[in-house]
Amino acid sequence: MQTLLARYAECIFWLARYMERAENLARILDVNETFARDGDGAIDWRPILTLNADEARFLECYREMTPENVLAFYILDAGNPTSILAAVRAARENARQLRPLISTEMWSQINVFYNRLLALGPHDLARHNLQRLCSFIKEACQAHTGITEGTFFRDQGWYFYQVGKYLERADQTTRLLDIKYHTLLPSVAAVGTPVDVSQWNTLLRSAAGYHAFRRVYPRGMTPAAVAGFLLFNDAFPRSVLVCVCEMEQLLHRLTSKYRLRNGNIVLERVDEVRAALGASTIDSVITSGLHEYLDGLQIIFADISRDIGAAFFGQDSTG
């Protein structure tokens, strides 16, 4: 049985997470620019800054919440740990350490991607160029996914990569949904108005889920149905349920096929989450508070990440 260096497993888990993170952020910025306009056509960027609770940090560095500033903060600000540049830089640093393990094509694509991001300037962030830029970032992330699928050796490392990807994706979907949670509060009068529907539309498009949603719900679009779709649909590749199911299967392979018994604790926890997700309905979630529910999921995902570190990467214990 081939063994895998614990540090490699850790690097590959985080490589997948950072690339997935970069892609999700590009999706959100892209769609926000295009669709998230209010009745007067102005774009509200404040919800974006609540994504990672970034508002306070943003205001330390930027005076005004202008689109230019928010975009600079999230795309090219090397000092902002939640920027796309920071995510790709972290992915590249992990990839650099993984070069004995990953294909040359995987490394070279990330390397070129990062160098292209570094070469971008304020002009590329101009409003009329933004969509092109976001497409470039999204496609570079997707190229990464494709190259990985096509070239990565299917040993333990592959499973750690996939676990990282789905964990990050599940987390990102909860954050995306949280941007608009307040519209699901019963007290909000605007629910159901055209503006509101367009915002939920936006949400689905961020997750590339608009057409999939339409196939499941050909008629009508309610906020609750959209939230339920993103959380509980069992076929949509970015839904929290699908991501957690994938993680469960991957962890099962790691503990059985590769006999990584330490993983059983993680597997049990993921099992529980999957069961809980399967038993929930969107109506009960909304009744007890969507925001709190999403918060709870994010905490669980952070716990799972920590458990994975302890079980496989030798963190907090010598193994």
Binding site: T3, L5, R7, P100, L254, R261, N262, G314
Partner: peptide, 28 residues
């Protein structure tokens, strides 16, 4: 490391016990 097909390790990946050298892997 790639050309040999062997792991590239750093000092922190190795540990000596009873005068034998071990590397830290996902399975111990």
């Amino acid at each position: 490391a790639r050309e040999m097909g062997v792991p590239l390790v750093e000092g922190r990946d190795l540990v000596v016990q009873d005068d034998k050298v071990y590397m830290k892997t996902t399975s111990g």
